[in-house]
Design a protein around this nucleic acid. Structure first.
Length: 564
DNA sequence: GCCGTTTTCGGCCCGACTGTTTTCAGTCG
């Protein structure tokens, strides 16, 4: 069992305990332990197997949870979880995912109506039965109905980081490579497509301890679910001569494949997952590698992230594909948090982790005071923090730290902190964290005002979406992007796997309008700095090159840009 | 439930908004 799955089960238990109205500090302990485990560099399962080690060495894991962890990896559950699942059906957790319903609401609905599925909840709202309960009304019913509809659209999909973790593990185990939407870098993944030439792989896959619910199995293909989360995995075994054709075929996208096959036909070829064949004599002319297929069709090889039939075939034909940004181009990370607000590490720890990644600089950007829950900084603390960073930089640490802030954009578009305090800082990210449901016009006015602020360097997570959970807020994107381009305010591509915001379509749009970008992780822990790869992959989906992204500049060039 | 003790029990995070309301509980971040 991977750490990420263990963490999920602990969080699920904490959610159920919350519905049960248990002691909030005990619940928090479970969440803390989950957070520590999720970001722990070693596998919990390996530590548990080692008689010379103890998981209680992990900050946040004590005796009780250590015992639960042992049971969890042995049998997939533990007593506290079993107990909670007896009281409340697991589907209640699904109701918790609906915005507007918290633990108390879920509990009330369960106790009054025995509602346990979204379907029942939906019917209840449609029949306006919620209004019979105290403190529930028509507006809530409406909000829940909307929430259910959004939730359904995203159900059954998985975040890229989870799918990548599973994919890496299985690929190593099987000697396979990923295809499908994971390879294209889609922000969510419905199922994993793995390809191999190893004939033993199918049998091996089915014997994997975390593989269950076999959906189909044959000589060359097996399909099953993986892990507690039930991610569907398809493994295909293909002959070596067809490997490139199969990789091309199963990487997709569907639209890209259709366009490519049409092109092949026009040129007298037929393309399928076994190869590229001449129509007149059925002779195979390509198939071992993707490159030879694309080349034979008069194209340069197209990076998987671009394969959406959005103009990439035409560009490849003319040799005008962009030279896409790569992870190794990144020289710094410009959005991260420390214990000053809601991060888990110190400035020194974040800087050291970034230095270890080979970065030349970072900006520390804790929250501002409007985010009281996160212990956001006020003017006084900002000034002190800027001084602390100057002090830090006096010694050569092998990395330069810039003093920054993720400053809230207030409801009316003003910055959360006074401009003279913000002017003390090197780097201000402006972000929306509240009043996300404004009317589009009001939201546009608000963001225009924020972008007009002379202290703002970059607009953070610009659509506000939280994948599988929250929809982006509505505003006139073009208007804000044009203004940002005019004033030299950058757009952030937030690399956190929960956000990946901006997404490909808007990246392309903003680039066309003259915008430039940063790619930053929004790390709340040193481990999160490695999420940069997901951001870069999204940037590639948005056709961005090294030049489009400010934090590909070396320290000297970046500093020069700051002074502009 | 965890942590850190001036060790074995006390502290751990809370402000703002919304609408369920007319004084405040529940949700969100």
């Amino acid at each position: 069992m991977e750490n990420i799955e263990i963490a999920r089960l602990l969080i699920e238990t904490a959610d159920l305990m919350e519905i049960g109205g248990e002691d909030s500090f005990r619940i928090r302990s479970y969440r803390n332990a989950a957070g520590a485990i999720e970001s722990y560099p070693e596998r919990i399962e390996d530590i548990l197997k080692d008689p010379n080690r103890s998981v209680t060495d992990i900050q946040g894991v004590g005796k009780s949870i250590a015992g639960s962890l042992k049971e969890l990896v042995e049998r997939g559950s533990f007593p506290r979880r079993d107990e909670m699942l007896e009281k409340y059906p697991p589907t209640a957790l699904e109701m918790l995912r609906i915005p507007g319903l918290g633990p108390k609401g879920v509990r009330t609905l369960w106790e009054h109506f025995r509602v346990s599925t979204l379907q029942d909840l939906e019917r209840l709202c449609q029949e306006q039965k919620l209004q019979e309960l105290p403190r529930m009304g028509a507006k809530l019913e409406e909000k829940i109905l909307k929430g259910i509809s959004h939730y359904r659209q995203s159900a059954g999909r998985f975040l890229l980081n989870y799918a990548s973790t599973v994919s890496e593990q299985l690929c190593e185990y099987l000697g396979a490579v990923p295809a499908g939407s994971l390879r294209r870098g889609r922000e969510t993944v419905g199922d994993l497509d793995l390809l191999t030439t190893n004939e033993q792989a199918i049998g091996k896959f089915l014997k994997h301890p975390q593989v269950h619910d076999v959906l189909g199995q044959g000589e060359t293909k097996a399909s099953a679910r993986f892990g507690i989360e039930g991610l569907q995995v398809d493994v295909r075994c293909v002959p070596e001569d067809s490997f490139g054709a199969a990789l091309q075929y199963f990487t997709g996208s569907k639209d890209h494949g259709v366009a490519l096959r049409q092109r092949a036909l026009k040129m007298g070829y037929s393309l399928n997952e076994y190869g590229l064949f001449r129509v007149k004599d059925d002779e195979r002319v390509a198939g071992k590698t993707e490159e030879e297929i694309y080349t034979t069709l008069g194209l340069v090889w197209i990076p998987p992230e671009l394969r959406e039939n959005q103009g990439e075939i035409e560009a490849a034909e003319k040799g005008r594909l962009p030279e896409l940004i790569e992870l190794s181009d990144i020289r710094g990370d410009l959005h991260m948090h420390t214990r000053e607000s809601d991060g888990r590490a110190t400035l020194e720890e974040m800087a050291e982790a970034a230095r270890a990644l080979g970065y030349e600089y970072i900006a520390i950007t804790d929250h501002s005071k409007a985010l009281a829950m996160a212990n956001g900084l006020d003017e006084k603390r900002v000034v002190e923090f800027a001084a602390q960073v100057r002090e830090f930089n006096k010694e050569d640490r092998g990395i330069r730290v810039f003093s920054g802030l993720e400053c809230d954009i207030l409801r009316d578009g003003r910055m959360d902190l006074a401009e003279d305090a913000l002017a003390e800082l090197d780097w201000v990210v402006a972000s929306v964290h509240g009043y996300m449901n404004l009317e589009p016009q009001e939201m546009t006015d608000r963001l225009m005002r924020a972008v007009e602020s002379p202290v703002v360097k970059v607009f953070g997570h610009p659509t506000g979406r939280v994948l599988l959970h929250r929809e982006p807020y509505h505003y006139d994107f073009d208007a804000v992007a044009k203004e940002a381009a005019k004033r030299g305010v950058l757009f952030e591509l937030n690399a956190s796997p929960e956000r990946l915001d901006l997404h490909a379509t808007l990246l392309k749009r903003a680039k066309a309008l003259g915008c430039r970008f940063t790619i930053s992780t929004d790390a709340h822990h040193p481990r999160h700095l490695s999420n940069m790869k997901y951001g870069v992959q999204m940037a590639r989906r948005g056709w961005l090159t090294k030049d489009d992204v400010l934090n590909t500049r070396g320290l000297r060039a970046f500093t020069a840009e700051l002074r502009k």
